[in-house]
Design a protein around this nucleic acid. Sequence first.
DNA 1: TCGAAAGTTCGATTGTCATCGAATAATTGT
DNA 2: ACAATTATTCGATGACAATCGAACTTTCGA
Lengths: 119, 119
Amino acid sequence: MKVLFHPDVADLHLSSVLYALSDPIRLLIVSELRNNQECTCGDISVPVVKSTLSHHARTLREAGIIKVRVQGTQRLLSLRTEDLELRFPGLLSSILDAFETSEEKKQLLRAQGTVVGRF
Amino acid sequence: MKVLFHPDVADLHLSSVLYALSDPIRLLIVSELRNNQECTCGDISVPVVKSTLSHHARTLREAGIIKVRVQGTQRLLSLRTEDLELRFPGLLSSILDAFETSEEKKQLLRAQGTVVGRF
DNA sequence: TCGAAAGTTCGATTGTCATCGAATAATTGT
DNA sequence: ACAATTATTCGATGACAATCGAACTTTCGA
């Protein structure tokens, strides 16, 4: 049984959280997690290959932004909404609200099926 | 006379803004700018050498976070508070509020006089 | 038991960034 | 003119990160 590291609320660092959220792909992941409660990696549709998605999930987890729960062969990802709100009030909402209406998100969605290197 | 590039409000990108603010030194700079309206580079006290500070100021300017006004041999830096609020409501406040009370800020202030490489 | 499914890890590549010191540029005051 | 002040640019360095494909691990079903 794999043990996954999750930082404690007290150990969340603002700069690490901002860094983790400064990548458009990761913003998209987090944005999908806001709507659906729990997602498997496979549910999330981002324009990168599986191993890269895994890397991003790890980055988000280690920054304290998502929780990863193991269930069989799959991992269930969820946002650590309360923890983040406790530590950085208002932060996540303002970021995700801004992302929803951004040009960046539209571009990513357009690129959806276009995973480079698959051919 | 030097012309400094400042992105238009419509051209601000969330990920770039978050990236620019994901560096502790830059957070400290922005935090000083929130209190004092306009600062010269020299006014800002950060634990890095001048050229590095200049680099950070450029990063912040190009991300659209600060405005730089030339006056004689010095540059007056100020926060683009309204522009940011317009584009990303609540974002800057939540970030800066979180930074004020953070351990990261304290650490930086402790490191104040300790610019490595000066000896 | 064996294979399919879901993710992770690894190695390689490529690119970017934070940092420094030294050199340079621009402006003001003498 | 010249020197001092203020800040930028440049080149080098070392570190880290995003990405891919391939190999691996773990678990569930047939």
